[in-house]
């Protein structure tokens, strides 16, 4: 469901700069986690572009997003047919959807065994719930002029990836690139990031996920990013979903 998109938007929000020098893989990863999970709440306007490169088909959507703690709201504004549809993700397998024409909120629970069923190239497994350090065992495989290349091996065997490789900025500790590999060691997809500085924090404003095997690419662009604006808890409830305007 669209909560994947929501999670990934929050994933981008999570990056901020920390101008510290790393000494080993664990330290580097811990510093990257601090960049990613710095904000108390976030909001932005999002443009989502899903491209089927084989068929040359492009799908575009626009939405407002809100995030506080582990909860996220995704309110669609475009296309017109989706306008007003809102999702609230409480956890990885619990999402509420509000359909304005039916004036109904439905709880959607997704089986954890389901894996990636989305049309977009992002999946829930791309980003850990709390921090990379808790979910992965890091190994520094290479140091380049500007980056540390970390190989992260999942601690939980249920993780669909065999390992991931992250290129972490040496100066600001945000990721430039994340490569995802299968259990057989074959590359699956690659995410690239663009970061901007906002109120002294580095925040990703564009993330592109390219899946060569599927021949598809998904690009998320964030505008009007706002951080730590004190979003109320009441917003992140079933009742809050029915409100037509959040801001």
């Amino acid at each position: 469901m669209n909560k994947t998109v929501l999670i990934l938007i929050s994933f981008i929000f999570s990056f901020q700069s920390l101008n510290l020098q790393a000494q080993d893989a664990g330290t580097i990863l811990a510093k990257m986690d601090k960049v990613m999970f710095f904000a108390k709440d976030k909001q932005a306007d999002v443009e989502l572009k899903i491209e089927n490169l084989k068929k040359g088909k492009v799908t575009e959507k626009r939405a407002e997003i809100y995030e506080k703690g582990t909860k996220k709201i995704f309110r669609y504004v475009y296309p017109k047919s989706d306008s007003g549809i809102t999702s609230l993700t409480v956890s990885d397998n619990e999402t509420y959807i509000y359909l304005p024409l039916f004036n109904m909120v439905k709880k959607i629970t997704t089986s954890s065994s389901l894996g990636n069923m989305n049309k977009s190239d992002f999946s829930l497994a791309d980003k850990p719930a709390i921090s990379y350090s808790e979910s992965y065992t890091p190994e520094l495989v290479k140091t380049t002029e500007n980056s540390y290349i970390l190989k992260l091996t999942p601690k939980n065997l249920k993780n669909p990836y065999g390992f991931i490789k992250i290129s972490v900025d040496k100066k600001y500790y945000y990721p430039h690139e994340i490569e995802y590999y299968g259990k057989d060691g074959k590359p699956i997809k690659k995410a690239t990031y663009h970061f901007v500085k906002l109120n002294g924090h580095w925040v990703a404003d564009k993330i592109t996920m390219f899946n060569e095997n599927k021949g598809s690419r998904t690009t998320i662009t964030l505008k009007n990013i706002k951080i730590n604006k004190g979003l109320p808890d009441s917003m992140f409830t079933k009742e809050g979903l029915k409100k037509k305007k959040t801001r």
Binding site: M1, N2, S81, I85, L99, L101, F102, K106, K119, S120
Partner: peptide, 27 residues
């Protein structure tokens, strides 16, 4: 049927579009 309990096709295109949103990402 899952949303409204009615085992029919809705009469309005807009309602169909909103239902569509729920499954459009399923490949």
């Amino acid at each position: 049927k899952a949303v409204t309990g009615n085992d029919t096709i809705p009469d309005s295109k807009e309602m169909i579009q909103q239902l569509w949103f729920l499954f459009e990402q399923n490949e």
